[in-house]
Nucleic acid binder design. Structure first.
Lengths: 365, 365
DNA sequence: TCAATTGCTGAATCGCTTA
DNA sequence: ATAAGCGATTCAGCAATTG
């Protein structure tokens, strides 16, 4: 009797609900091998030091929430192994998992996935269209996040809707780098004060692509770090069942309201973000990096004046150092100058505008 | 005597050579803290099946069952920890390392880097302009590889030529995603049969950006998995010293010929743009000492507020006395303020930032 | 004596979205 | 149209002082 009750209760998957509690305990209370897809956005373990201000002295509103604090790598690893074990138990044999992270945590997550027996299918880069710049000029602009897509085990028959993704990508095979905007505007949920309700709300376009690509209608999608419920919202729109787990009451509240407002097959959810494809910008420095022009080589303008190419893509000529545009403008005494058509190089006795090299690069993109 | 001989031999760094042997043993034979940059393209875990050796040189059997898959990861981890430890010993305190990999190995490498005490500065995505498509339509086109850039330890003063990279990118801060073509055409080295000489030859453009960005001319760049020597070739072109380690005779042979054909660019072309931070410091008081500003003269900010210059180079304004930065910050209610661009003075009816006076002093230095 | 901390100086941002 | 806001950030360097 007890066993039956247990079995019965275990069989009842609480779909389309937000569950309250620690995600590991809650996952372990659900029936095993019952979920088709898990999307997880775990804490990143950012280890921020102090405050950061923009050059205009405005303060950067950083992630300093308690749920992102871990004492050390070992503690973070233990946490990761625990929730991954619980997640793996929940997955059907042909189910799959997506995890998103940054360089602070993604290497540890990826290694833990492999150690737990998951089989990595791809790592996918979310390239942000408008990231936060590096204000101090000490590193590269942190312009992407990494997602790992893995099946439950090697050889599993995971779901991959190849043609649907190809259609989303204008008929071209979807690549492992996705250019998508950050979540803001009307999609970004606000609290009563008008502040952002969650510091790291993910854009629906990201989840749209994940769910269209790796589930079918009627599948169950679980998110153990539900936050404001982006995963549930997109799953509902796309006719999938969903389960969210979230321990912060404030987030659950926002998500609950959000999910109530979502309608399946909402037209907005079917819109895919299309990037206005202006002609891609090609920095002059790429001609040097690619060996199309050598550092030390001389460029020539229409009046026979010369300038030398340097290793960092700047020119030196007429006592001036700067971009191809700046040095051209200086020589002409003009306020501006299009260096691409102004400067020429010599090949096989001919004088050719450097713009032909730019066109060559564009044709390869 | 013995000690002297050892010390002497240890001091002799074999620069601009390809060293034959296992990279761990060779690195351990070189003097510690002697290398400025390490660029490493280690073997992928999957490619090591059947060839992987444990640190004790015992051979790891290729295996296909569940448990041995884990032992395979463990062996790869041991190998990674070993060569990273040797690499870290070789690095100068302010040196840095770049490691490139794919999802097969990069997560294990990244975690091992963190565990070894390296401090990750960025993960950088090489977005391939022309990747190999996924022919079977079972996954996303694998269109990128991941590089990790790390300093030897937290707080180290690593080299980062911010302005040079910005110049390479036409005046815009360089991002963490780099779009570069794969290595093909004339750059791709062929063997006697016309087949590619190495399966994973990296493009020179990739190394150009790495070396320009994180070393200075005269620095020593070491590549423990030298292959066909792309790292050495680009280092030589850019006026850096290099050391390659490669245990396959066929690769050493190709690389040796390649390096012989490479010529360094002329010295002037190697100078890169530097940041203003490197410019000599000029105390505000010098403007007063030199008579460029008179004690008692009023400075003005963008909102028309005034402050008086005193003979000791301090300002008085809004009831506050202090440096040009302190009084500016007070007036703005900001945590800090660059007084050089904030304050202006009047000359011939015009309002001019005091920074022009600093620049005038610098030009005379 | 030296490592750790404090405190001062002053250098530093890109593109997209919303108002 | 133009201005303002803002995004998962391991974002300074050095001298003087302290323990």
């Amino acid at each position: 009797m007890t066993t039956m009750t247990r079995a019965k209760s275990a069989a009842a998957l609480p779909i389309n609900q937000i569950l309250d509690g620690d995600c590991i305990q809650v996952m372990n209370s659900l029936p095993e091998a019952s979920v088709d897809l898990i999307f997880a956005d775990p804490p990143y373990n950012l280890q921020l030091k102090g405050e950061l201000h923009r050059p205009d002295n405005s303060r950067v509103d950083a992630v300093d929430d308690h749920w992102d604090q871990f004492s050390n790598f070992a503690a973070y690893d233990a946490f990761t192994q625990d929730w991954l074990r619980a997640a793996r138990r929940l997955l059907k044999p042909d189910g799959a998992i997506w995890v998103i992270g940054s360089y602070h945590n993604i290497f540890r997550v990826g290694a833990a996935l492999q150690d737990a027996g998951f089989w990595i299918l791809n790592d996918v880069i979310w390239r942000k269209a408008n990231p936060m710049p590096n204000f101090r000029g000490k590193r590269f602009t942190n312009a992407h996040e990494t997602m790992i897509w893995a099946s439950k085990s090697e050889g599993a028959k995971y779901t991959f809707n190849y043609e649907a993704l190809k259609s989303l990508n204008e008929g071209i095979q979807m690549r492992s780098d996705w250019v998508l905007p950050i979540c803001n505007g009307g999609e970004r949920l606000k609290d009563a004060n008008g502040d952002k309700a969650h510091p790291t709300q993910k854009p629906q376009s990201l989840l749209h692509r994940v769910i269209v690509g790796s589930t079918n209608p009627g599948d169950v999608v679980l998110d153990p770090f539900f936050g404001t419920g982006t995963t549930g919202a997109v799953a509902k729109m796309l006719g999938r069942d969903w389960i969210g787990i979230e321990r912060e009451a404030a987030y659950r509240e926002v998500a609950l309201k959000r999910l109530g407002d979502v309608r399946a097959f909402d037209k907005g959810a079917l819109e895919v973000s299309t990037s206005k494809r202006a002609e891609p910008r090609v920095p002059f420095g790429q001609l040097v990096e690619r060996g199309m022009l050598r550092p030390g080589e001389m460029l020539i303008n229409g009046r026979g004046q010369m300038a030398k190419v340097r290793a960092d893509g700047t020119l030196v000529g007429d006592g001036v150092t700067g971009s191809i545009h700046q040095v051209g403008a200086k020589l002409e005494g003009a306020p501006s100058c299009n260096g691409w058509t102004y400067w020429h190089f010599r090949r096989d006795g001919k004088t050719v505008p450097i713009d032909v090299l730019r066109q060559q690069i564009r044709s390869e993109m």
